[in-house]
Design a binder for these strands. Structure first.
Lengths: 132, 132
DNA sequence: TCCTGTAAATTACAAATGTAATCCGTGCAA
DNA sequence: TTGCACGGATTACATTTGTAATTTACAGGA
């Protein structure tokens, strides 16, 4: 009964990110927001919006003669889905080799390292709780 | 001058994984290996192999009347490319929020935690070296 | 009142992808 | 020797994706 999330394409992710950030937006606002990062024509962006509606990733209410779009799926769940599917594809679902590559070849920022520490601690704590 | 790696599709990744594991293989061997995990027809798998050759991800030498295929691109580099492109797409290139989701919702194995620790230590060491 | 600028809906079209089937050549079993 | 089974090459075909243009409908200004 797991993931029946709509499959969101690369370009569509950019649109979703904007809408998750804004919480709700007209297509003009979405176009505006994306014009900073992409050179897509407004038409293109509207196409993407339309597809996302059809996929069930966005919903809208009419506001005068335009629509006010809003996410129909939860950001975090989509991220987790995408993460799983990436890990499955490239690392057979295992986080460790992904991290190993990162450790070897990428430079982690201090912030990232702090997050890693937090995860380690959190886990250690959980484990402590569980075995006594 | 960065990533001009061939873009490897989802299904193609499965094929690449087999060949990276075996180091070299005939198509029959690839089909055999994949029949465990997928229900693709041999024809389908041969199509994928052909596309990977065309993309420059595989190369081959003739061995009697069949080909012996072998990776033409490095596994680790492909993994890193794929990791970057995933992080860009879903997390704007940032590792931290990816890890945060993981920490919150997934259960990390002991092995994974050990890897995390190793990364943290490695980084701390590097940092130490660099600032004195 | 009529024109025009926009928004949404519909249509377009090539490339990539999933998923094969058909064609062609040949070494091997009968 | 002959036909077939199997490998590679070519072709097929629907769907998804990137990237838009065209069409339709209307609200607001000239």
């Amino acid at each position: 009964m797991s993931s029946q999330f709509p499959k969101i394409s690369d370009a569509e992710w950019s649109v979703m990110r904007v809408i998750w950030d804004l919480e709700e937006a007209t297509s003009a606002e979405i176009v505006e927001a994306l014009s900073a990062d992409t050179d897509w024509k407004p038409r293109t962006i509207r196409t993407l919006i339309g597809r996302l509606v059809k996929k069930g990733a966005l919903e809208y209410t009419e506001q005068g003669r335009e629509y006010l779009y809003r996410p129909a799926i939860e950001e975090k769940l989509c991220e987790i889905e995408a993460s799983k599917s990436f890990l499955d594809r490239v690392f057979q679902g295992r986080l460790t080799p992904f991290l190993a590559n990162f450790a070897d070849t990428q430079t982690c920022s201090d912030e990232e390292i702090a997050e890693l520490k937090r995860i380690v601690e959190m886990h250690e704590e959980r484990k402590g709780n569980q075995e006594k």
